[in-house]
Computed example of a mutant assay.
Amino acid sequence: MDSSDSECLFCKIVAGEVPAVIVREGKRTLAFRDINPQAPTHVLVIPRDHYPDAVTAAREESGIVDEMVAEAHEAAVADGITESGYRLVFNTGAGVGQTVFHVHAHLLGGRGMEWPPG
């Protein structure tokens, strides 16, 4: 696994080459506001290292997916949405809407969510 991909938008955000509204910075993670929010709270949580999708990240057995979920929870706390609840979404593959192939969790909250999604 390469630690970064020079063509990856999220790797460029990690490197400071592309601006983002950062809400949390961990040693191995970064959380920032989505530029096209689908809810009042819509934060993306990414690892600083490049993994193309959630399965690849989980198979590394480094605990990075655990850290991403914990950071998403802390971002939810900061936005005051833990009591009402929030949704975490990992899209894996173009067919389900993954457009940036750097694993990321969508933290969504601040409004009611329908089920099933999509």
Rank of each mutant, 00 (worst) to 15 (best):
M1H: 10
D2I: 06
S3N: 12
S3W: 04
S4R: 13
D5F: 05
D5R: 12
F10W: 01
K12Q: 15
V14N: 00
A15D: 12
G16F: 07
V18K: 14
V18A: 09
P19Y: 06
A20I: 10
V21F: 08
R24T: 08
G26M: 11
K27L: 13
R28N: 15
R28E: 15
R28D: 15
R28H: 14
T29K: 00
F32V: 06
N36L: 14
N36F: 13
N36A: 15
A39I: 11
P40N: 11
P40Y: 12
P40D: 10
H42T: 10
H42K: 09
V43N: 10
V43D: 13
V43P: 10
L44R: 10
V45N: 00
V45M: 00
H50M: 08
H50W: 11
H50N: 11
H50P: 08
H50K: 05
Y51L: 10
P52M: 07
A54H: 08
V55R: 13
V55Y: 06
V55H: 09
A57Y: 07
A57M: 15
A58I: 02
R59N: 15
R59Q: 15
R59H: 09
E60V: 05
E60S: 15
E61Y: 02
I64F: 08
V65D: 03
D66W: 04
E67F: 01
A70P: 01
E71K: 00
E71V: 15
A72N: 08
A72G: 14
H73V: 05
A75P: 06
A76Y: 05
G80K: 04
I81G: 00
T82P: 02
T82R: 01
E83F: 02
S84I: 05
R87L: 10
R87Q: 09
L88D: 02
L88P: 02
L88C: 01
V89T: 14
V89H: 01
G93E: 05
G93S: 06
A94C: 02
V96D: 08
G97H: 11
Q98C: 06
Q98F: 06
Q98A: 08
F101R: 01
V103I: 12
A105D: 04
L107Q: 08
L108R: 01
L108A: 05
M113K: 03
E114H: 10
W115N: 02
G118A: 09
G118T: 03
G118P: 00
